[in-house]
Design a protein around this nucleic acid. Structure first.
Length: 393
DNA sequence: TCTGGGGTCCTAGGACCC
DNA sequence: TCTGGGGTCCTAGGACCC
């Protein structure tokens, strides 16, 4: 049976929420991501008015200030965006139980076989768009296709407030009408490789036999290009990720050079990662540390241990040791990160009973603090070294 | 220009085992 | 004596996405 997928994308999401809640932002170039003086910030979302000045996501904020000096700059309110996102996803679930959320601002909806209840896909999409607008004041752009991959590209075809339907059988023609830059999954590096190989258009790649594509670009990329330009229906999104990870990283306003400050940063990152592991009820044996130096060169170390990480101190010690393996003393550090890779459910089977008495005590204490924090978020508990003097941030 | 944060996936090489 | 092939796990780096 032919499937029907909607891909729904919220338009300039963060900026639109802000313009909805602040009438004085409406019709003005609004840039969410940071204040003009913020160092090392990037644009998170630019309103459509700001995009006219050339401002776009991921652009260094300083550049956005230069392009759009009279724009309104704000840091944004991620808790609010999460809330609005949940509200909108709930609307999606009214149309089908098969919703695959891709990020805070987009999702696929499998609407196969809902015609008798909601009418044809176009009617359904128009209803859904109306409902989102009525309930949240926001607009979304929708793509419809029997291929998830094509639906995803179609939703970006006309923005904002767009609706693009690619009828069954037209997937290939649609893909071939696109410029190479619009092919989802090909970034800067791949575009360059493709051009160096002599391809200038989607059609040229389309006309190249699979074997030749594989010999030029390798097994995976060759196969991807072949399938993508045919709007292949088997290209699925949202299948269970097998190597889930939990990571956190911080770019510092000023480069770090002092060992004590570096260690404090590692401790804070450790606490953050472990807190989130507890929230998700997972554990991990593989820990990674990432260092970005002042010249932006980035290195990472990771190690897989015999036993999972036990508690905050354990993670902190492991992170310090990994850091030590890579760090070149004297170089300024602009970013530090810690990740727990390949996490597993806390109740998944484990070979050994690894709790000795001391560790068990520590873990139980942290567990108690964790539960208390969850119950009373207003209580602020911190290791002494992480308490900052300046609390008005 | 001067480059966030949270993710997933791929590649290539090495270790180790059969 | 002059060395195969495959599978699996691990690591570092990088591409890509929102």
């Amino acid at each position: 049976m032919t499937k029907t997928y909607l891909h729904v994308d919220l338009d300039a999401f963060f900026a639109s929420v802000e313009q909805r809640d602040h009438p004085e932002y409406r019709g003005k170039p609004l840039i969410v991501g940071g204040l003009p003086g913020d160092k090392r910030a990037v644009v998170s979302t630019a309103s459509y008015e700001a995009r006219k000045f050339g401002v776009h996501s991921a652009m260094p904020l300083s550049q956005a200030v230069r392009l759009c000096p009279n724009g309104i700059f704000i840091r944004g309110n991620h808790k609010l965006y999460q809330q609005v996102s949940r509200q909108i996803m709930e609307i999606f679930y009214q149309y089908s139980p098969d919703v695959i959320q891709m990020s805070i601002d987009e999702a696929f909806i499998d609407i196969t076989g809902t015609e008798r209840i909601y009418g044809n896909p176009e009617e359904l999409a128009l209803n859904l768009k109306n409902q989102v607008h009525k309930l949240t004041g926001l607009t979304v752009s929708v793509g419809i296709s029997s291929s998830m991959y094509v639906a995803k590209i179609a939703s970006g075809y006309k923005k904002p407030d767009g609706l693009t339907i690619i009828p069954d059988g037209q997937e290939e023609a649609f893909m071939l009408s696109l410029p190479l830059e619009k092919v989802w999954g090909l970034g800067k590096a791949s575009q360059k490789r493709i051009k160096q190989a002599g391809f200038k258009s989607c059609r040229q790649i389309y006309e190249c036999p699979l074997k030749l594509l594989i010999s030029i670009f390798g097994e995976n990329m060759g196969q991807f290009l072949f399938n993508a330009l045919r709007g292949n229906k088997e290209m699925l999104f949202g299948t269970e990720a097998k190597n889930h990870s939990i990571s956190t990283e911080t770019t510092f306003e000023e480069d770090l050079t002092e060992r004590y400050v570096i260690d404090s940063a590692l401790m804070e990152l450790s606490q953050n990662v472990l807190y989130r592991m507890r929230c998700e009820k997972v554990r991990s044996r593989t820990i990674a540390v990432k260092i970005r130096y002042d010249d932006f060169t980035t290195v990472s170390v990771q190690e897989t241990f015999e036993l999972p990480v036990l508690n905050e101190d354990d993670l902190f010690e492991k992170a310090k040791r990994l850091f030590q393996k890579k760090y070149i003393p004297g170089r300024g550090i602009r970013l530090l990160g810690i990740a727990a890779e390949k996490v597993e459910g806390i109740d998944s089977p484990m070979q050994k009973d690894f709790f000795n008495e001391k560790n068990e005590k520590k873990a139980r204490l942290e567990e108690a603090i964790f539960n208390l924090k969850k119950k009373h978020p207003e209580i602020n508990m911190q290791k002494a070294r992480l308490i900052k003097n300046n609390r008005n941030d």
